[in-house]
Design a protein around this nucleic acid. Structure first.
Lengths: 230, 230
DNA sequence: GATAGTTTCATACAACTGTTTGAATTGCAA
DNA sequence: TTGCAATTCAAACAGTTGTATGAAACTATC
């Protein structure tokens, strides 16, 4: 049907414009001009501007989640239902990093859109992100199987830091390049994934002897001098 | 002068409203109503809405940077010009985390404003953040003194990850609480600072022998240009 | 080929936005 | 007091925004 053509033309134009110029700078009139459709078509096909944005974001983040779970499932199968912790973290961060970083991905509209969504965070997107909890719980469950005996809180912190590093790298990749004057290679995605994973693994297994014992926190020598607040 | 009263009433009202409802939802009319001043006063005293936001953000972030540098200076003095790496990272992340987390800070308008600025990121704030590079270079310089022989790229990555973990913790503190069902205590700021610092130290010193020895790693003679700035 | 349902279109709407204007008011100095 | 500048004020401005409307054009079914 010609209705589908209009619908997808709007989606494509919106994603491209939002990716390039951000949510704050793009109006429905910009989108319909880019898509060569009538202004009313947006409300006809999507109901409202927010629902259009939501559909864009849901589509992309469902794809990412699917990738993550595929990789997790594969790792758990290979480990007999118990994947090594680095494989779990790899499954968590690799799809996002791979999707948003790298030299060729510069031209990927979808990737640039997701970066923009990570930087700007408008209400419809925030609402969706808040429902992501269930998805993350699956990774917590896998981590629990992989590191039995660990405090749950430790697992949450490890997952939290893994996401922190990968999201912050995506969001600030330009600033890190500028700060490091190009010495941090943001195009070598594999190296970045490895780096994020290995730091996350260290965070999760710090102070833990190879044997399983109770969690003894803070493996770092407390050599700091002034501990009092400012 | 009564002009100062108007000016600061606007600043206070704007910070409170932005902190509570976000930049997207607050108009100049909301602000002047809250401040009990005339609408035109904003443009009279600040020139434009963006300049008002910029002034709010600059004030708060200058204060944070000052705190950071004070703590860094203290640590370097105590170490004879060479602070231990964990003290440097502590100086970097502690002021921000301490300012934005913790039980009592719930009521701090300034802290809530900075969290909001981290989540929403409007153009005037982004412009200011991009000038933060010089400030971060001072920490890179301190890290270079603390870990001589380390590749610069490693230092940049370490600093980047430290900021990633602290910013992401601030920005996502509600989601982490919800995900962990309260098992991650976001009120124990000291523990969080320690955690972020210790993971950052691990990231920076991984694969490096604990003993203090000359940089036996780099086979390449250090022909790299040494930083001159700062 | 008439009909019913879907999709497109031009246009209007209603509300809200940041900013400007020019006259009133205030505060202070001479 | 007078005069002058700084400040406040109500009002309007000029533009943009997302959304709604009702007629027109299309499409597929009978």
């Amino acid at each position: 049907m010609s209705s589908d053509r209009t619908r997808s033309a709007i989606l494509a134009a919106a994603e491209r414009l939002y990716a390039d110029r951000g949510f704050g700078d793009v109006t429905l009139r910009d989108i319909v001009a880019e898509a060569n459709v009538n202004l009313a078509a947006v409300n006809y096909h999507f109901g409202s501007k927010d629902e259009l944005i939501a559909e864009l974001f849901v589509t992309r983040s469902l794809a990412t989640n699917r990738e993550r779970l595929n990789e997790l499932k594969l790792a758990e199968e290979q480990g007999g239902g118990r994947a090594p912790i680095d494989a779990i973290l790899h499954a968590l961060v690799s799809p996002t990093l791979r999707g948003c970083l790298g030299p060729d991905r510069e031209g990927s509209t979808a990737a640039r859109f997701m970066i923009r969504a990570s930087i700007e965070s408008v209400p419809p997107i925030r609402r969706i992100k808040n429902r992501e909890v269930d998805h993350l719980r699956k990774f917590i469950a896998a981590m629990r199987r992989s590191l039995p005996g660990r405090d749950d809180a430790e697992l949450y912190w490890g997952l939290h830091f893994a996401l922190a590093m990968s999201h912050h790298t995506i969001r600030e990749k330009e600033r890190l390049t500028k700060l490091s004057e190009g010495q941090c290679d943001l195009n070598d995605v594999d190296a970045i994934v490895d780096r994020v994973v290995s730091v996350s693994v260290m965070a999760l297994t710090a102070g833990e002897a190879p044997a399983k014992k109770a969690p003894a926190r803070s493996a770092i020598p407390q050599g700091r001098l002034t501990r009092q607040d400012l």
